[in-house]
């Protein structure tokens, strides 16, 4: 049973890690607590549903298009909300409230467009191979679950490489010191858009993978994901991107251990209590080094 919990935890943790990394990239670079991240996730899952089940597009183009859709939504949110707020030099709390409002609007738009009931994601051709059960020791795992882990690892490696490119470095630089970045002639506005696009694309990727694994999407799925992302990022810490990734895996593992050790209903309470404790006693996060920028 322990191995099963570990297996489930790593699979779930991978999805959380991707989403948390996307959120952390936006937060560390722009200082925005992007509450709408969960809604971008939900939107992407629904786009994937439409492409895969309704349009019956093959898997890989669907995934790529979904990531594109998510990235574009992120940029639209930046255009409509964050850039105007920046022009007014708004404070962090204003961004937070606006982002929260945006996430509510998005969530309900998704419900209006796709319907509020849970929709089943059907993969026409790969159906059998993806949901076959494989064994790891005494534990079971489906190909879909394994896919989540593998794709996550590949995505993380890609991001690591990307962070050494000029664009990647400029994103990190902007997050470090926007004034110096401007003085060096960096195109800060464009970098802001790219940041939102990259962060959202990661959430979109996570959303597709999870939706394929769970075979379902529903309009409220963004809310629990946002919860978990916030917990992962705060508990892990915002010291660096690795902390957010570690936080994601940690939350995935704790959640599954909680289900195993206590019961399914209280797994979230455990996490929430952990969140509150971390904020109260170690605000920099478990892997954090110093008080993070949270609290602008």
């Amino acid at each position: 049973m322990l191995i099963q919990t570990l297996v489930n935890g790593i699979s779930l943790g991978s999805a959380y890690a991707l989403t948390a990394l996307g959120f952390a990239i936006i937060y560390r670079t722009l200082g925005i607590f992007h509450f709408a991240h969960g809604s971008v996730y939900a939107f992407s899952a629904h786009v994937a549903y439409s492409l895969i089940t309704l349009v019956k597009m093959p898997l890989i183009p669907s995934v790529l298009l979904t990531m594109l859709a998510g990235g574009i939504l992120g940029m639209i949110i930046n255009f409509l909300i964050y850039e105007p707020l920046k022009r007014h030099a708004s404070s962090g709390q204003v961004y937070m409230i606006a982002s929260m409002g945006a996430s509510i609007v998005l969530q309900n738009l998704i419900a209006t467009a796709w319907g509020a009931i849970t929709k089943v994601l059907v993969l026409p051709n790969l159906e059998t191979s993806l949901y076959n059960i494989h064994h790891i020791g005494s534990a079971v795992i489906t190909m879909a679950q394994l896919l989540v882990v593998i794709v996550t690892v590949v995505a993380l490696a890609t991001i690591a490489l990307f962070s050494k490119s000029m664009i990647g470095l400029s994103i990190i630089a902007l997050g470090n010191d926007s004034e110096v970045a401007e003085n060096l002639g960096m195109k800060v506005k464009a970098i802001r858009y790219i940041t939102l696009a990259v962060g959202s694309a990661l959430a979109a990727l996570s959303a597709v993978l999870v939706s394929i694994d769970l075979r379902a999407v529903d309009s409220a799925m963004g809310v629990p994901i946002m919860l978990m992302t916030i917990i992962a990022v705060i508990v892990g810490g915002t010291a660096n991107f690795g902390a957010a990734i570690a936080g994601g895996y940690l939350i995935g593992l704790i959640k599954n251990f909680g289900i195993w050790a206590i019961s399914a209903e209280w797994d979230n309470t455990l996490l929430f209590i952990m969140l509150v404790l971390v904020i109260m006693f170690k605000p920099a996060g478990l892997f954090g080094r110093k008080i993070s920028k949270l609290g602008r």
Partner: peptide, 9 residues
């Protein structure tokens, strides 16, 4: 002023 560089790079 303060010779700001990018600490993470």
């Amino acid at each position: 002023q303060g010779a700001n560089v990018f600490p993470d790079l």
